[in-house]
């Protein structure tokens, strides 16, 4: 209940501030962005995050699971190790290095985002399956389940919450990194913030920052609810 209240208050502030600035006549020597501008950039932001995240899930989940299969474990250390090291590298560094390689533009921004979003998804998919108590797998084998049955009935359901948590983390990071992807030709709410920074108009910065914050919080809350729904009942605490 308290959480709900905190959430509503925060979102009201972010959205209220956005409306308040949008309704202003002028900001120093510039017009504030219109609702259309904000809506369009929010849509672009979501589009970049959505495409990059779907790609990351499409590649990360199967790859993470693949390296837990018997006989594939030799790939686990290099692949998961790279993912771990990759997460240590600052997002701006990844975005910046991608720019000279891929060139500027919407598509290269998405690819940069994809690379960075891939890491938590990959890592959690691997960990979710790898950390299952071997005794559970053993007893499934002992009861005569085939490898496929074990994968589908035991491993995936047990790993699902962990994988979902990875997707949630990845999405939240992706929303943040997408504000920076504007630097390499992406579109999105980051553009409004950067325009404000370049023109030194604090209120214009806020006009971009407040909806970005709202977007991040809303996405995180939605995915949190989804994560809870995806967790098998027996694994829920309390």
């Amino acid at each position: 209940m308290r959480r709900r209240i905190v959430l509503v208050i925060l979102l009201s502030i972010f959205i209220g501030v956005t409306i308040w600035i949008t309704e202003m006549g002028s900001l120093k020597y510039m017009e504030p962005k219109t609702y259309t501008d904000i809506g369009r950039q929010a849509w672009n932001h979501l589009k970049m995050v959505g495409i990059a995240e779907l790609l990351a899930i499409g590649v990360g989940v199967p790859l993470g699971i693949f390296v837990t299969r018997p006989g594939m474990k030799k790939f686990a250390t290099p692949i998961v190790g790279t993912a771990n090291v990759g997460q240590t590298i600052p997002s701006l560094a990844v975005i910046a290095i991608m720019a000279p390689i891929l060139g500027y533009g919407f598509n290269s921004a998405i690819i940069a985002l994809f690379v960075y979003s891939l890491l938590p998804v990959l890592r959690n998919s691997y960990a979710g399956i790898n950390d299952i108590d071997p005794a559970i797998i053993e007893s499934a084998k002992g009861m005569g389940m085939s490898r496929t049955q074990i994968a589908l009935r035991i491993e995936l359901p047990l790993a699902r919450p962990v994988i979902m948590a990875g997707i949630r983390t990845s999405t939240v990071i992706c929303v943040g990194t997408a504000t920076l992807a504007v630097l390499v030709g992406g579109e999105g709410l980051g553009k409004i913030i950067l325009t404000g920074l370049y023109t030194q108009i604090p209120l214009l910065i806020v006009q971009g920052a407040a909806p970005t914050a709202a977007l991040a919080v809303i996405l995180d809350t939605l995915l949190g609810g989804f994560e809870a729904a995806m967790t098998p009942r027996g694994l829920k605490k309390g």
Binding site: G176, L203, V206, A209, A213
Partner: peptide, 20 residues
């Protein structure tokens, strides 16, 4: 919970909100 929400806010946006 608040600290968790804090983490989800993109840094560029937080900088922007802190300035004014």
């Amino acid at each position: 919970y608040l600290a968790g929400i804090m983490m989800t806010i993109p840094s560029l946006a937080l900088f922007g909100l802190l300035m004014p």
